[in-house]
Design a protein around this nucleic acid. Structure first.
Lengths: 203, 203
DNA sequence: TTAATTCTTAACCAAACGGTTAATCTTTTT
DNA sequence: AAAAAGATTAACCGTTTGGTTAAGAATTAA
């Protein structure tokens, strides 16, 4: 019974911290605001999490755990290259659509303190796209695709998927999209990106 | 004689503010740190700029003025489509390489307060890529390129150019690049991106 | 039941923050 | 040279900030 109650409060804190940190970053977030959001006393934040940084780290950890492992998992699947590119784009944009603020959050905090990010990140998550890279190399050898630089191709794929989530306010404004319009744009993109890439590299 | 001295101090403030704001954002930046960087008293910041927000606005304005007008200018040039894509990629990546922190800065602050951004931004800068979009439409009609969505193609071009600057710490780490290595990667990209795009859409 | 442990709160604190003030130094104007 | 205007500083101020404390509820263990 104790554990259930624990989780209840601790989870509410984490949920509130997520909401505030995601939208304002560690520097813009206020501990009081997180406490208010969770409808608890500010001291409770320090009871469950030592300090602001520890609370932030927990939130950041969850955000990266939610995104990166899935990326790698898909890229390591045993699938033909073209099919994998299609599958990846669809799954990745769907995942980000469900957490559209995470890309901004991760990019912001990663650049805020790159050393800290790389340290805590590479300790937990192995993001080695070597299988995908090797698969590209093999496709080149077997003359299935043009001889492109595998690393550049990989970055292209990631860029095309993530960037719209980072520049969303500007894109929506320039092309006069409302929320539904942007969602439509993203859904269309799920098919456009693989077509775009495969068209480019297919022999 | 007065004006020269004015400029000297005011410029030094702006320069220091740029350095701090670019790297830490408006929330992470401290007025004292900016003053220290400029080797002046903190009160001077308020003498030349009313308050933190006004100083930040001046910095943000300069950053956007440095990037966006050039993007539009190139996209509005009278150039054949393929040549324009090549020219744009080269000039844009070169420009960003000279100001590699600006993309992170603009994306961070744009998402920090989208309404403010869109208001002050669209007042000053008209970023209507209509000429480029029309050019794509015409290339489709004349069967020079495949019938792709012009907006998606435009976003693809921008995504491929900007994203590496946003994810630089992660990219450098995953692929073991040092500073020179990343620069090499970017330079290679100046040719890879146009090839990649043109390969994809050319009939 | 009672003692110990865990959870929660209100009140508090020192440091850091953006911003102000009043006096001083420097330059320009007359 | 004297007065006016502009530039610069040190000291100060009220507020906000992350964090603590000590006391009280609530739950668990004995």
């Amino acid at each position: 019974m104790k554990k259930i109650k624990d989780k209840k409060t601790e989870d509410r804190i984490l949920e509130s911290a997520k909401k505030i940190f995601y939208n304002k970053g560690i520097d813009g977030a206020r501990m009081q605001e997180i406490a208010d959001e969770a409808r608890i006393n500010k001291a409770m934040l320090h009871y469950y999490f030592r300090n602001k940084e520890a609370l932030f780290d927990a939130v950041f950890k969850e955000a990266t755990q939610k995104i990166f492992p899935q990326v790698i998992e898909i890229l390591n699947m045993e699938k033909p290259l073209f099919e994998k590119i299609e599958y990846f784009t669809d799954k990745y944009i769907t995942l980000l659509s469900q957490n559209p603020i995470i890309p901004v959050f991760v990019i912001r905090e990663m650049n805020n303190d790159p050393d800290k990010f790389l340290k805590t990140f590479s300790e937990r998550i192995k993001i080695k796209p070597e299988i995908f890279i090797r698969q590209i190399r093999e496709a080149i050898k077997s003359e299935e695709i043009l001889p492109v630089d595998p690393v550049q191709l990989f970055i292209n794929l990631i860029s095309l998927c993530i960037f719209p989530f980072l520049a969303r306010p500007l894109i929506s404004n320039v092309f006069g999209m409302n929320e539904a319009g942007f969602e439509k744009f993203l859904n269309k993109r799920k098919k456009e990106i693989p077509e775009f890439i495969i068209n480019s590299i297919r022999i």
